[in-house]
Design a protein around this nucleic acid. Structure first.
Ligand SMILES: NC(=O)c1ccc[n+]([C@@H]2O[C@H](COP(=O)([O-])OP(=O)(O)OC[C@H]3O[C@@H](n4cnc5c(N)ncnc54)[C@H](O)[C@@H]3O)[C@@H](O)[C@H]2O)c1
Ligand SMILES: NC(=O)c1ccc[n+]([C@@H]2O[C@H](COP(=O)([O-])OP(=O)(O)OC[C@H]3O[C@@H](n4cnc5c(N)ncnc54)[C@H](O)[C@@H]3O)[C@@H](O)[C@H]2O)c1
Lengths: 218, 218
DNA sequence: TTAAATTTGTTAAAATTTTCACTATTCGAG
DNA sequence: CTCGAATAGTGAAAATTTTAACAAATTTAA
């Protein structure tokens, strides 16, 4: 072998599929399934087998020809790629409907994520214990430090302001639920989720329904 | 002109950007901005101007050369494309952390979405009024009918079972929060959102941070 | 009225992502 | 040990999506 393939750019879509694979593998592992082929994997998660293999190929060779993939081994490898074998602390800002739901969700820890701080502007919420953490006043955020992940669950009008605070306090990755775009300095990663948008997209496909062909699944 | 462009296939990514445009337009309309150019639009939502124009071009011509787009007109047009000018009723199944957050969210109505039913297995939750609706027993779902949108917010292990129920009751589009893939008959549209996956993807980019180049925004 | 400045809609090129098709490897049966 | 079946990894083709570039339209300034 001449040279191991160097880190070519990996498609973003590949990255977004990794958690899907990971989750599915965890699930079948619970059912004591030890091996799985790309064929079966693909069928179960609703993609093409070649896509699954191609996705993995960006990171190395994890299977055995003729046999398939060891579920345990693959979980370890994909987990490693996603760095799920480390603990990742997160701050949440905005302990409203959504923020509370996130704080109460008990399964983030299984993926290595831990909400260790929560802040709100509303003093009536300060001091409340939700999930594992007690809500603090937003004004204390600048003093607290060095948590890599931030979750923004405040009203859209405060999104940018909160993002600035988080970045200033050292947050390096932000999950933004507000639907508003936030500007961040170079080097800070933002991902946005908006549940209203998802409904709207769903609704589009519903309204423009074409009876023939496959429906979108997952 | 020989023939008006017929309904070519529209990129899915285009559809997912439409709600972003729509939301931003609503926002600037509140600030009494009447016109906007693709340049400015693009800068504000973090895309290229040519992409914005291309996206719109799939649906018609909505701007005025030399001037830009009328905010009001564009809102109406994009709203029309997404069918937001109609009322869309939705059912939610699983009134836990997330389901409750969704039911309490007061702004879905502004986009034409209305959660008109909510079901849970847990009888201690049945009868509770959350947001505008009262939680009903899941066993009543088969009797209730003809709501086009369904939201699944039950544990992953029940996802498929609930999907089957929803489809049987006439639901045509499903927003699935469980992270489990669900199989649906042809003609039913599914969109999935998993907050854990989003964190995992964010975390990937954080861990594989490349200091040079743009960061991902929005 | 004319010229300069904007800005759209669109065509074509570039970039990205998915799918195909084939080779090589491995297992297990005979 | 040899053969056949199953299946991974991969290079190339195909499909999709983004970006660039420019002609046509419109406004504004002179
Ligand atoms: N809940 C949903 O189903 C849903 C759906 C779509 C979008 N969203 C979006 O998600 C975000 C959160 O939604 P929600 O329903 O939890 O809202 P919410 O109003 O229930 O909660 C917002 C919380 O943020 C706090 N807050 C406001 N400004 C703050 C600031 N500057 N610093 C710290 N805390 C501040 C408020 O006190 C409140 O507790 C919003 O942007 C909303 O538009 C929510
Ligand atoms: N809350 C979060 O932050 C979060 C994060 C990631 C993923 N999720 C996923 O979203 C989904 C909902 O999460 P949650 O935190 O609201 O869960 P939850 O446990 O708080 O609520 C689930 C609700 O569904 C009900 N239920 C269970 N089986 C049912 C059935 N067959 N029919 C009707 N109702 C049934 C339960 O009684 C409960 O009220 C889960 O699949 C979860 O994995 C949630």
């Amino acid at each position: 072998m001449i040279l191991k393939k160097k880190k070519d750019k990996i498609p973003e879509r590949t990255i977004t599929r990794l958690p899907i694979y990971y989750n599915f593998l965890l699930e079948i592992q619970k059912n004591d399934i030890r091996m799985i082929s790309s064929q079966e994997m693909a069928r179960k998660v609703g993609i093409k087998a070649s896509q699954f293999r191609k996705d993995l190929s960006y990171f190395g060779e994890f299977g055995t020809q003729g046999l398939g993939y060891s579920v345990e081994h693959l979980i370890e490898k994909i987990g490693g790629i996603l760095h799920l074998n480390y603990r990742h602390n997160a701050v949440i800002v905005g302990v409203g409907n959504l923020g509370t739901a996130l704080m109460n969700y008990p399964h983030f820890g299984e993926w290595g994520f831990h909400i260790v701080r929560a802040y709100d502007l509303d003093t009536s919420k300060v001091g409340r214990k939700i999930g594992y953490t007690t809500v603090k006043d937003i004004r204390e955020l600048p003093r607290d430090i060095m948590i890599p992940l931030g979750i923004i669950a405040v009203p859209p009008s405060s999104a940018q302001e909160v993002a600035n605070l988080l970045v200033a306090s050292g947050v390096r990755g932000i999950l933004n639920f507000t639907g508003s775009r936030i500007e961040v300095p170079n080097g800070v990663v933002v991902r946005s989720v908006d549940l209203t948008y998802e409904l709207a997209v769903l609704n589009y496909y519903l309204s423009h329904f074409v009876p023939s062909g496959d429906s979108k699944k997952r």
